[in-house]
Design a protein around this nucleic acid. Structure first.
Length: 408
RNA sequence: GGUGGGGUGACCGAGUGGCUAAUGGUAGCAGACUGUAAAUCUGCCGGGCUCUGCCCUACGUAGGUUCGAAUCCUACCCCCACCA
């Protein structure tokens, strides 16, 4: 297939594939194929907003077993700028991460940077928190930037509203997200078409550096609708009408709404979601949230909590969580999590980790972040093997019981 | 020995008659964090209790003035600087 001649048209399609390996109830185990490799699901994706999973090197992330990590359109646009990254060969070359990547669109910043932005139908004007300059992100611009970044998956530019948003606001965000999805889709298609036209050249005549820079990216839509089931349904149906898609994201959850509400929304969407596309629950979550999501048919997760909590001294354990700064750990020779196989847990005693936080050495932040990432990645691996074995229900029930028995 | 300055809660350090159990900061303790403006933020931090309040003990020590003192007066102890 790669030996001379025009690249077959189906090559692009084959680059993005999702295969279901097993299901148990709504829980699914699958294999997602992306241009930079395969992802076995369910899977947790660490967040590397600025092209780095805070505090951890790509090599360390690789060793956690993470199969993909995220970058952020808004933040990478501000620093170093998408042109810089494109010139360096794209996000993969830039970061040296050779596995799949996904970029978030900046839609979440519409929510998180409220106060620094103004929304209009055209797009969102942000005032940069870095230097105060005004930057406008539109669906088209978000696609342009993500195309330049060159991740395997680009996310649609959406309008995220708070979890407690009243119906009217949730409706507005949901409908705008759909209108913006049309613009994202046609804009992204233009980039794909441009790239595809290159394929009329014989592959053998394309210099290797251009081959490696071959734009290979898919676009995933985001379902919105706040906490209102009917809006969620409408959002999903509207999204599907605009398909087909190689993956579908559920956004606007875990942004302040109660957990049962998030579960209810997932349950409302699950029967309508296509079986043959991965479902990505954005911004989730804590360990228990992963299992609750998996049980409701979610395949992919991302969350900053692993690294943020790690930096702030909270480590996840099978039995709940622990404050690494706590006086209880003083002098302890026990491993952080005796059941964990990460570098932190197989090397350092609790008393040393606590000490690192007390003296405010950056190593402490890194080691606990590393553990938390591994903890979630491993949870995904465990869930997958139990789904394949048909033992997911009982295992996850027991896991959650133990996890909630002490702490959260 | 003389002169001047000073002794405040674990530490540093404000406060110079009542609003002071006593500003701040540090240390200590606890908590929060979910598509990252976060190595951040919040609370507690003399003791006790029947704990939206009450009672003790507290600003070197001992007295005194005053309705009322960490704040004014006296003596003593200690520390620092300079002079002998």
């Amino acid at each position: 297939m790669r030996s001379g001649g025009a690249r077959p048209a189906y090559a692009i399609a084959v680059m993005f594939e999702f295969r279901l390996d097993a299901t148990q109830g709504s829980a699914r185990a699958g294999t997602l194929t992306l241009p930079h490799g395969e992802i076995r699901t369910p899977a947790f994706m660490p967040v590397g907003t600025h092209g780095v999973v805070r505090g951890l090197s790509p090599k360390e992330i690789e060793r956690t077993g993470a199969q993909i990590f995220l970058g952020n359109t808004y933040h990478l646009h501000l620093r170093p700028g998408e042109d810089v990254i494109r010139e360096m060969g794209g996000l993969h070359r830039f970061t040296t991460w050779s596995r799949p990547m996904l970029t978030d669109s900046g839609g979440f910043q519409v929510f998180s940077l409220e106060g620094l932005r103004r929304i209009s139908e055209n797009g969102v004007e942000f005032q940069s928190h870095v230097d105060g300059t005004y930057r406008t992100l539109t669906p088209e611009r978000a696609m342009e930037i993500q195309w330049a970044l060159g991740a395997d998956v680009a996310m649609a530019f959406d309008h995220v509203v708070p979890g407690q948003a009243p119906y009217e606001l949730a409706l507005e965000g949901m409908e705008r997200t759909l209108r913006w999805l049309d613009r994202c889709r046609s804009s992204h298609a233009q980039f794909v078409d441009q790239a595809t036209s290159v394929r009329s050249e014989p592959l053998s005549t394309i210099p290797p550096f251009r081959l490696s820079a071959f734009p290979r990216q898919t676009l995933w839509p985001i379902v919105q609708g706040g906490t209102h089931d009917d809006l969620r349904r409408r959002s999903l149906e509207g999204t599907l009408e605009r398909g087909p898609w190689t993956g579908i994201a559920i956004g606007g959850l875990s942004v302040g709404e109660p957990k049962p509400v998030m579960h209810r929304v997932l349950e409302a969407l699950e029967p309508v979601l296509p079986r043959d596309a991965p479902r990505y629950l954005m911004g989730v979550g804590f360990p228990a949230d992963l299992l609750e999501g998996i049980a409701r048919g979610v395949d992919l997760f991302d969350c900053v909590a692993a690294t943020r909590n790690g930096r702030h001294g909270t480590a996840w354990l099978p039995t709940g969580r622990i404050n690494v700064r706590g006086a209880a750990l003083k002098g302890s020779t026990a491993p952080l999590d005796p059941e964990c196989d990460c570098e932190t847990c197989t090397t350092y005693p609790r008393g040393y980790l606590r000490h690192l936080f007390v003296v405010e050495d950056m190593l402490g932040l890194r080691l606990v972040s590393l553990h938390n990432v591994r903890f979630l990645v491993r949870l995904g691996e465990q869930a997958r093997s139990h789904i394949l074995a048909g033992t997911f229900d009982g295992w996850s029930r027991e896991w959650l019981r133990r996890h909630h028995a002490r702490g959260t």
